[in-house]
Design a protein around this nucleic acid. Structure first.
Lengths: 212, 212
DNA sequence: CCGCATCCAACAAGATACTG
DNA sequence: CAGTATCTTGTTGGATGCGG
């Protein structure tokens, strides 16, 4: 990208991560951890291979990620964020929190990955009842499964399944995400196609962070 | 900008503010308050008039700013952020804090405005001695003046001059900014061309916020 | 398959000139 | 002053190819 040529830390940050796709590449590496070219491509539907390749080179040159040949079991290059790259987490958090306000708008053609939903409760909610015992919520949105754990007064999340969750939420991403982030209530979520099984009072423990 | 087409709040945020120049337009409106087309253009050296015009239209359509015909004394259109637009402040803060790490690199051709320096201590430092009496620092970087006030345990800033400051810092932007944000020490800043007059012990009150 | 490199049509950005 | 019109250039997305 062409530099803005301004002595301003916002402009200099954008000189590096302001290009199209760049912050989404960082998002994928932040959410997935070190991964291969193909994993990144799967997590970035719509990106052209040459462009992803270019972005990875730029990010490596800027010192935000490293490219390393993984040991035999993988036998291919792995991309991983450096400390400077991981330091972008507050940027992604701030952007993601601000962007929540647009998640109620329906856009049927949007692609979806469970990872994109899983980070939301972890980043944008806190445990309203830290003293209560741990609990596990299984989420399935658009067929993709994720697990939300409420434990030690914190919210953790990951993709995948768990046996015997305390609560099971299944439905379209809009309903699941809206409910988990407190944007819509249970009744409305069910109206959007959400099915609920288990201890629904657990939902009250997910307290949205203040939006400022 | 073409949408990323992903149901992810980060991607949706970038659908709206991910275009080139867009976040810098928001920065100017955030730092300057409501202003005219020309004021924006002056605060965005390098932007083409047609592009600025396009961005303003897009931001208005997205509900991030309003365009209003100002009353007689100004007699021209004023652009102002809406609440959704102002809600981007945490994004700009996070980006600006992350970008500080690149501000030590010298790029002689970068343009500079006092406003771009003034927000840094206000956003990225706190008053290490909240009980101490108020103090005023006059800063002049690259000929552009700004005022930093340390008061009520907080750091405020604005462009302009004040009579009889407690401390006067004058020098190239890199020296002034580095010193104010705690990236470099006084000795190094003086090596970079900073001149200091007054109560230099005031500098100890500017405590950098943790970088995570 | 993985990790790109190459090619091309469509689009966005930058510079400059111009108008109400 | 506050933009618009036009032109040129650069970037992107998408398809395809290709060695390891």
């Amino acid at each position: 990208m062409r530099s803005y040529g301004q002595y301003c830390s916002i402009a200099r940050a954008l000189d590096i991560v302001g290009d199209r796709w760049t912050l989404l590449v960082v998002r994928e590496l932040m959410l997935q951890g070190p991964c291969r070219f193909t994993d990144l491509k799967k997590g970035l539907p719509g990106v052209a291979a040459n462009l992803l390749s270019a972005r990875l080179k730029e990010l490596e040159a800027a010192g935000l990620l490293t490219r390393e040949d993984a040991p035999p079991p993988v036998a291919t290059a792995l991309y991983a964020l450096t400390e400077d790259g991981r330091a972008l987490e507050p940027v992604l958090r701030a952007l993601g929190l601000w962007g929540l306000r647009f998640m109620t708008e329906e856009r049927p053609d949007d692609s979806f990955r469970a990872r994109w939903l899983a980070y939301a409760p972890a980043w944008f909610t806190t445990d309203a009842d830290p003293g209560a015992p741990p609990a596990v919520i299984q989420v399935v949105a658009s067929g993709e499964p994720a697990v939300i754990e409420v434990r030690d007064g914190r919210i953790h999340s990951r993709t995948g399944r768990v046996t015997d969750p305390d609560l099971l939420l299944e439905g379209p991403p809009r309903a699941v995400l809206g409910l988990l982030t407190g944007v819509i209530d249970l009744e409305l979520a069910q109206g959007l196609g959400l099915s609920v099984r288990g201890r629904r009072e657990l939902l009250a423990r997910l307290r949205p962070v203040p939006r400022d």
